[in-house]
Design a protein around this nucleic acid. Structure first.
Lengths: 252, 252
DNA sequence: ATTGACGCTTGATGCATGTCAACTTGAGTT
DNA sequence: AACTCAAGTTGACATGCATCAAGCGTCAAT
């Protein structure tokens, strides 16, 4: 993710109307004046650093968070230090939507690299949305999109084998980065192999072996966190519901 | 699910204000008059029968659907007839939330048994919600709840073994039925073993073997679709993130 | 009752992937 | 540079569950 660009403090404090993400984020489809009203309720703190938490499971829900720069992971912590990674969040993506229902966070959110985050106090947001139909609509869309993505993930975990899972992860990263104006074929992953494995329901070792294999097969060039995709169509093919080779498994 | 009760045609046509589900469903928290406004936009068709579709993947999104009686499955159809079951929906639960974003259904919804369904035209609903803050809030809560449940499911598919999955499925059914005034320990499953397997990411045979084993272990009494839970606490323990026995697997 | 189709169960076998262990590499610290 | 520690890689081995195959109960239609 980290595209090695220098970020000035001014850059991260930009208002929504000047933010390059506005077409992916809450302001999408809003009139200029409504964007400014939205802007007025958003809190922008100084950048957070790797390992900082936006919130932890069990805490009271007050705000949604939007990634402005950097990346964040959400995860469900379990007793013995184990954790299930639930998602990786790139700029423009909203975090905390699952907590509206119980007004309490069920998962934790941790910053993966130095990141700028917009905080959206939910109660004020809700009041605002009631008076701006297009904002309300956009919020429904974003909630709905999250549900759709979770369904894709259920399909991945329920039906796909290890190879298909990693291919799906890489093509998903590729397309999301591309939407944000970054290269779809050359990027840095801000998360560890362990976190990728947890997210995909695989052991670290399996992830590692697959990276090696993909490289041997000429699909990727990998150096630590740096990934160059050499054959994106092949990866996409692999990620699709098509089975890996002649023998598919889990045809249940 | 089917609790073998006779359902009159009057029963299924009841207005929201007289519906026993109103505390689980959209009307929750609404004032009497607002319930009536909501009621006025809802369409109630005659009962659907096993195998009927509410909608199919690819169709244009127009309405949300709420189960009034009976049960529905949602699934992602794949080319070769294979399908991934995404969820089972009981009375009071809303179907189609994932389609708001793309205004097009990504999955299909099929009735599992004779069922009464309320149709909620979304555009009219959205207009109504804009003028009823508590309805808007309830909608946010329902969307959020769905996201939270999907996260639970990701955890199940990512980390739990077959035994834990089936135990989680059974305890979930138990508690949901219980919330609807039915027995938490004696119920009929309206879905096939195959569908349960697909939902849980397991082969039919594995599901079948587990039912047998649970019965041998005195946790259940099973006869076809009829399940009697004999030791609910034990099932809940199993379903929790606790590993099945001394050796846990997938500690990634 | 007979038939056929389908869903379910049970057993035998194999494989993908988890687990364990050892080693390598890289980044940060002194 | 030397040291430390976490992260990643690779190999050897173990196993849970998918797969294949066969048989059985149930239900509906005839």
């Amino acid at each position: 993710m980290t595209q090695r660009k220098v970020i000035s403090f001014d850059t991260i404090r930009v208002a929504c109307k000047n933010c390059s993400l506005s077409q992916l984020c809450l302001p999408m489809g809003l009139a200029q004046e409504d964007i400014e009203r939205l802007d007025s309720i958003i809190k922008r703190s100084r950048p957070l650093h790797r390992g900082d938490h936006l919130f932890r499971g069990g805490e009271r829900f007050r705000s949604l968070y939007v990634v402005k720069t950097g990346s964040v992971k959400t995860y469900a912590p379990s007793e013995e230090g184990g954790e299930q990674v639930l998602g990786f969040h790139l700029p423009g993506e909203i975090i905390g939507l699952d907590a509206i229902d119980k007004s309490c966070h069920a998962c934790s959110a941790k910053v993966l690299e130095t990141s700028a985050i917009c905080e959206v106090p939910f109660q004020r947001f809700e009041e605002l949305a009631a008076s701006i139909p297009s904002l309300q609509h956009q919020m429904y869309r974003l909630l709905s999109k999250e549900i759709g993505q979770d369904a894709d993930m259920l399909l991945l975990l329920g039906k796909k084998n290890a190879e298909e899972r990693l291919a799906a992860f890489l093509t998903s990263m590729s397309s999301r980065l591309s939407k944000r104006g970054l290269s779809p074929t050359d990027f840095y992953l801000s998360m560890s192999r362990h976190e990728i494995g947890s997210y995909l329901g695989l052991a670290v070792e399996t992830v590692s072996r697959l990276f090696t294999r993909f490289q041997e097969d000429g699909l990727l060039r990998v150096d630590r966190k740096h990934v160059e995709v050499l054959n994106l169509p092949a990866l996409e093919m692999m990620a699709g519901s098509a089975p890996s080779s002649t023998h598919q498994q889990r045809s249940n």
